[in-house]
Amino acid sequence: MTQKGRNALLLTPAGLWLLVMLVLPLLVVFVFSFGERGAAGGYVPAFTLEQYANLPARWTAFKNTLILAPLGTIAALVIAYPLAYFLAVRCAPRWRTSLLILVIVPFWTSILIRSYAWIFILGGRGLPALLETVGLDDVRLINTPFAVLVGIVYGYLPLMVFPIFVSLDKLDKRLLEASADLGSTPWRTFLQVTLPLSIPGVATGCMLVFILLMGEFLIPSILGGGKVFFVGNALVDLFLQSRNWAYGSAVAMTLVAVMLVTVSVYMKFISRLGGQRDDISLM
């Protein structure tokens, strides 16, 4: 078999999978988005832009997603970076593995169950009750954007910690000594050596978390109590409750388009930041 033939063979399973599970459904959704809702729900073939014209009705879902997904990503980064730094640079090697396992432990239970736990923590008899004892009355946390933010940061934190940990762990510790040797204080060494060299991990972590957050629906529906909903929740509603497949398809296509735009802008930005560096790649 030729080299070309062998390469084709290597790519066939993934290619078929992508075709059947991604390209075809996407095509269906694309076609549906120009159709109409049947009398009893579902889809009736047509060619109209009416569904797209209706998009503003779902503006809140887009707004929530476009605010909370980047905010959640940034919050996760702010919490994950120091943790990853501690684990990779400061932590004694004999503790490192156990602590890393602790970071993954939450994955051993379903996100559904863990999010329900947050209902109790943020609910009336949880944190607010505690705050009442110090004189802060009537603090409502559950079913607020804050609750959703807490939930998504909690849920996606490990996905941010790991790529950053890996890039910091790979970092040659002698570079830090070299920097000190050349007269740089520890803080400046962090800014000039550690941080730039961990950018690949930061970029990967942010990308991963951001993309997943854009499609998130479980956490907002549990902790947002129907008040704080994402595009994902709108889709669940449109496809399963109101059975308006055509409109749902238009919303879905718009989400895909928004993601494509934000992600490519982000990639441009990261590769600009990386300049001609060879060590920056996104995944």
Binding site: D172, R174, V193, D279
Partner: peptide, 8 residues
Amino acid sequence: QQYALFPH
């Protein structure tokens, strides 16, 4: 020993 030059 291995130079420890800054790769970035």
